[in-house]
Simulated assay, not measured.
Amino acid sequence: MPLAYFDCIAGASGDMILGALVDAGVPLEYLQQTAAALQLPGLQLSAIKVKRRDISATSVTVSFPPEHKHRHLHHIAAIITAAELPGEVKQQALQVFQRLAVAEARVHDTTPEKIHFHEVGAVDAIADVVCAVAGLHSLHLDAIFVSQLPLGGGTVKCEHGIMPVPAPATVELLRGFPTQPGPIDFELVTPTGAAILTTLGKPYNHSPFQIQRVGYGAGTGDLAELPNVLRLILAEAFSPGQTDMVTLLETNIDDMNPEIYPFVIDRLLETGALDAFLTPILMKKGRPGMLLSVLAAQDKVDDMLAVIYGETTTLGVRVMPISRRKLRRWQEEKMTSLGPVKIKVAEWQDRKHMVPEYEECRRLALQQGLPLRRVYDIIAAEIKAFGTA
């Protein structure tokens, strides 16, 4: 599984992302063709090798004739929509600007449609976003991860006047991503950089990966305190095992009608639980009870709590982040003597284990008028014959 990891050593900006992409092997000519497709007069991209605190990096410059116009979201959407670019590139670029507009609207207590972009509506920001999206799209990635982001500090001068660092819109965009103040008084994360990374990427989940290529994108100027670079690591997810973080919700119940438990499990799974199960337990004073356990993504915790509190008699739930190690798995369709069957495949140390899906075997048992156990035996034997078990 190919992935990208943005190591935000000195934050992130649009031009740093482009520099990192070029340094990691995305052809500059491809980004130049992408920029040309925007049909903005005079827009040009160039790249040079530079050093930041003795680290070799690529600096990408977006140049364009001076202009004095403020664009609204619909102006930018029209430019992107009219460009001859892949549909997914245009869709993701529009999502980046939509999130920017929502963040600005929240800061200024208005609507995204009424926001008029200043710096992020300029030609260079439009090129930064669209070319960054196109560059990442060309890598055919399955996942994009972002490290903890340094917020910087101090103030910066913009068209709104003197603003705190990070800019208010940047703070809005970074909601849900790990950050840390400092380490210097400087604008390390720009609104454009934050919008690109937080729209296309997600916080790094500490899963292992195998490094394939590395690129460094240079920020403007050298910093005395740290190398002003954004590191892009292109990698393969470590196989056969994969690691991710999920949330475990647990509660002990000893005073509920047991006929309700299956309904609760169904509701949890329908609401997005990764798994939900019951374990018989012996509680205080010797009372038999049930331990209800639910695995869910972090953003589903509130939904899970709503089902648990709404459907059970519990008065409290334990909520714990946990790490999972998973085998690489996927689904294949195999042709058998009983017809096509979907097979679950798991891989461990270059060995594959194949198991027929229960619902598929049930369907075939009913269609063929065979015992379910017989269907399992037939399919298992034929899978072994394929030589891939």
Rank of each mutant, 00 (worst) to 15 (best):
V294L: 00
M335H: 10
G339Q: 06
R324A: 12
K342H: 14
V355Q: 13
S293C: 00
T313R: 02
Y309W: 12
V301T: 11
D299C: 02
V319M: 05
M320L: 14
G316K: 06
K334T: 08
V294M: 01
E311M: 05
I343Y: 03
V345I: 12
V294S: 03
Q331C: 13
I308T: 06
G339P: 04
I322H: 04
R329D: 10
M354R: 08
T312A: 05
K352E: 10
A306S: 13
W330D: 11
V355P: 01
D303M: 09
Y309N: 02
A296S: 14
I308H: 03
K334L: 12
L292Q: 01
L291M: 01
H353G: 12
A297L: 10
K344N: 02
G310S: 07
L291D: 04
P340R: 10
T336K: 05
V345E: 10
K352G: 03
L338Q: 04
G339L: 10
T313H: 02
M320C: 04
W330I: 13
Q349S: 06
D299G: 05
K326H: 08
K334N: 04
Q331R: 14
E311Y: 05
W348G: 04
K300P: 02
S337A: 09
H353K: 13
I308Q: 03
S337E: 14
D303C: 05
M354F: 01
E332G: 14
K326E: 12
R328V: 15
V341E: 09
S323V: 15
V341I: 12
Y309P: 01
G316E: 12
M320V: 15
A296L: 04
V307Q: 01
A346M: 09
I343F: 08
W330V: 12
L305E: 00
M320D: 11
D299K: 10
W348S: 06
Q349C: 01
D350W: 07
V294H: 03
R325V: 15
P340C: 14
G339H: 00
L327G: 13
R329H: 08
M320W: 09
E347T: 07
K326G: 08
R328K: 14
P340K: 14
T314A: 00
D303G: 11
M320Q: 12
K334F: 11
D303L: 01
L327P: 11
L305I: 00
T313C: 08
R325E: 15
S293H: 03
V307R: 10
V355D: 06
